[in-house]
Design a protein around this nucleic acid. Sequence first.
DNA 1: CAAGTGTACTATAACGGATAGTACACTTAT
DNA 2: ATAAGTGTACTATCCGTTATAGTACACTTG
Lengths: 125, 125
Amino acid sequence: MFQIDRFGRTPIYEQIIDQTQRLIASGLLKEGDQLPSVRVLSQELSVNPNTLQKAYSELERRGLCVSAPGNGRFVTADAFRLVGEGLKGRLEEIRHIAEELCAAGLPVEQVLDTVNAAYGKEIEA
Amino acid sequence: MFQIDRFGRTPIYEQIIDQTQRLIASGLLKEGDQLPSVRVLSQELSVNPNTLQKAYSELERRGLCVSAPGNGRFVTADAFRLVGEGLKGRLEEIRHIAEELCAAGLPVEQVLDTVNAAYGKEIEA
DNA sequence: CAAGTGTACTATAACGGATAGTACACTTAT
DNA sequence: ATAAGTGTACTATCCGTTATAGTACACTTG
């Protein structure tokens, strides 16, 4: 369910946060679904429970899941809408990079082509 | 000439590298131009000389500048071309984020509009 | 020679990330 | 009631990266 890269610079707990959000955004995780427990996921990924606890706490702070002590941790009803709003942040990243490329003199078409390619769309001549 | 953010997560030496590359890409730094010495820049930015040395060493490793011990450090002839190749990496970042947004169901038009906006282009209806 | 370059080296401090271990409270199923 | 599985809270420790401090040396130019 999760895939951890131990060599990159991005912390494990951030990877968990990102991937969980992506699972929600893509609909693989829906309202009411239970997230893997910190202990189970800890063994599955060979990651310290505290690290996962940190990630889950942040997801909870963002309102994407709620904890039912003694029971488990579940995706909230607002989760899908909330990650949708979070996509604006990703758009800002693209905007930021695009501004750099613009300043560097890269033609805009090349950027647009890249976006279209990512969407699996054929490049129009 | 340089602007340092001491609170962000990105290390100072990386900021120096990035900004220098951007100056070269935008043409503000051309072949033969002298980079500020580690000592001068150290005082100007209130940054340790070693930190700047680290940044400059990396730029040198990438072939963007050469050091003339006792004289100074200068932008190479290949610098402009090399940073140009580096832009492909930035494009890959955009591609990566765009794939995420695609998976999340964000319409492609919204991404294209963002790119166009970054290029200062009006959005076409 | 003096001043300004780059370079090299050691040592230290500070911070974030991750781990280890323990303990406690709660819910569910048996 | 008990056991197993949840979440939660803590403390302590380790490690790597970043940044700083200080010193020393070699080189080039004026």
